[in-house]
Amino acid sequence: MTVLSIQNLNVTFSTEGGDLHALKDVSFEVPERRIVGIVGESGCGKSTLINAILGLLADNGRVSGGEMMFQGRDLSRLSPREMTALRGPQIATVFQDPMGALNPVISVGRQMTNIQYRSGLSKAEKAERAVAMLRRVRIPDPEAALARFPHQFSGGMKQRIAIAMALMMEPALLIADEPTTALDATLEVATIELLQELQAQIGCSVLFISHHLGVIAELCEDVVVMYAGEVVERGTTRQVFNSSRHPYTERLLDCDPARQSSRTRHLPTIPGEIPDLRARPPGCIFAPRCHRRAPVCDTPPPEETVQSGHVARCHMVTP
């Protein structure tokens, strides 16, 4: 079963300088009970993608093609009211900044009972569920924590509270947008382990967005690599990390200093910049920076299947 299926999604923003094609023909699936990672650098369209899924695109943005099927319904065709009903109970989100996700002037307990307004439970039951959830994310002394305010918790604890709130309604899909980026290394690892554990217990699917290749490799079962608004490669994490076929994925992996086993004074880089998305080149979007560029790259690249489930959008893929 597939929880979320995105097919040929296109998103366009109207800007003063013309239409900006932020997502182009994005396709991937989030199967049931799986953790899918989306990885890419700034400007690759990660945030636009989740805003499109959540129906939260800015006023000048619109879904200009394709579909996003969530449990049999196309999200791009739902009314704002229907989307509101879906966000929270069905599709929950954890954002990068936990402080921004929690209301600073309302106690954690009240925020956690407020979000259960649809559950029809009594006040005592709601409080009980809040305590149970805080215990699951390992907040010490959860009963007392209910009376405290967000600023009384450390950054790592705040993010765990945000995760607890997102998962309290047992959603079918959790979207986690760089949830560990603001945390220190030791806390980052603890948060990833916690997410993994809760996902298995609740049985939801997770769409995990990150620019951190190490975190993706550790947490995700499938991975989607994005560049300049396009999916350049996708497959299982092993397929993509161990036998990447798209030149961008290869270069990106090379750039991670953690991949350099021996010490070097000269780190690899990807020269050049992301092209202007208002004027997309007709051919491969990565061609101007590609080390394997050939004349054929000036035509649109096909989606080549490398192996079952492993797809790269590149002319130069050899199966």
Partner: peptide, 23 residues
Amino acid sequence: ALLSANPEPDPDKAKDRISLPAE
């Protein structure tokens, strides 16, 4: 612990991790 906490971009890497409890 700090050295072991840095996730590496290798799905097959053994997760030899020293996790630190507490804040």
